[in-house]
């Protein structure tokens, strides 16, 4: 088993939200529910978010009037049945999609009204993604896959190389930089995906079933990496079916039939 290096990511200053007392805050958690320090500033604020899809002649309501605030540095899990709206919510949080109505604020940027180019810039700088299927490019090495996330930032070559090396070392893959995905285990591939997500030094990391394709030991390995990143101040939002993952979060949300509720005990 590869030893996981201690976290050493550079943190960004966080932007605080100002809120009014009238806003619907029913879903806002008031404090940390798990390990680590309690987050102090809100990174996300979702207000009355609805997302509907038109499928043939039917209108499908994926999200209905969701109000939610997620603090910077928080570790939040989203659970729920298939078709409950988890992926839709994650896509709205990840600036991959816009709500049909309502607002999604990320560090002062209204993602609901942002242009495609703005959303692209937000994704390039502020958000890291980790997918269940890893989504690595099979023809590229681990280092090259990680480097792909730096492509839109236009950094000098030397800095990119340094960042890539740091990110891979951070997830314990300093000795696997030249390996292609097919030469890596599932856990190692997911760690490459995490390195790709954090190499840009984002504010938030969104993970969709990051341990869904892994066995138990690899799951724990990945969770340790994610918790380490969260401890450094990275906001972590994880969609999961796995209760073992959810139990380690600061806050647990459940999405069912398009509505969200806090199930943190």
């Amino acid at each position: 088993m590869t030893e996981i290096a201690p976290p050493a990511l550079t943190k960004k200053p966080l932007t605080s939200f100002t809120t009014t007392g009238d806003e619907d805050m029913t879903m806002i958690d008031t404090g940390p529910a798990g390990v680590g320090d309690a987050p102090t500033a809100a990174l996300y604020r979702l207000t009355d978010v609805t997302r509907t899809y038109r499928q043939k002649q039917r209108v499908i309501k994926a999200l209905t009037g969701v109000g939610l605030e997620i603090g910077a540095g928080e570790f939040v899990t989203i659970q729920g049945p298939t078709g409950g709206g988890k992926s839709t919510l994650l896509q709205l949080l990840g600036a991959l999609d816009r709500p049909s109505s309502g607002s999604v604020m990320l560090a002062g940027t209204d993602l609901a009204n942002a242009s495609d180019a703005e959303l692209g810039r937000v994704r390039a700088r502020e958000i890291g993604f980790v997918f269940q299927g890893f989504n690595l490019i099979p023809t590229l090495t681990a280092a090259e896959n990680v480097d792909m996330a730096l492509e839109p930032l236009g950094l000098p070559k030397a800095e990119r190389a340094t960042r890539v090396a740091e990110a891979l070392a951070h997830v314990g893959l300093a000795d696997r930089t030249d390996h292609k995905p097919t030469e890596l285990s599932g856990g190692q591939q997911q760690r490459v995906a995490i390195a790709r997500a954090i190499v840009k030094r984002p504010r938030v990391l969104l993970a969709d079933e990051p341990t869904g394709n892994l066995d138990e030991s690899m799951r724990d390995e990945i969770l340790a990496v994610l918790e380490g990143l969260c401890a450094e101040g990275l906001t972590l939002i994880v969609v999961t079916h796995d209760s073992a993952v959810a139990r380690r979060a600061h806050r647990r949300l459940r999405l069912d039939k398009g509505t969200v509720r806090d199930i943190t005990r």
Partner: peptide, 16 residues
């Protein structure tokens, strides 16, 4: 599709 979707998700512009 997955590859290009992922690239767009990590910030690659349409043009790129």
């Amino acid at each position: 599709t997955r590859e290009f979707g992922t690239l767009k998700a990590i910030g690659w512009s349409n043009g790129r």
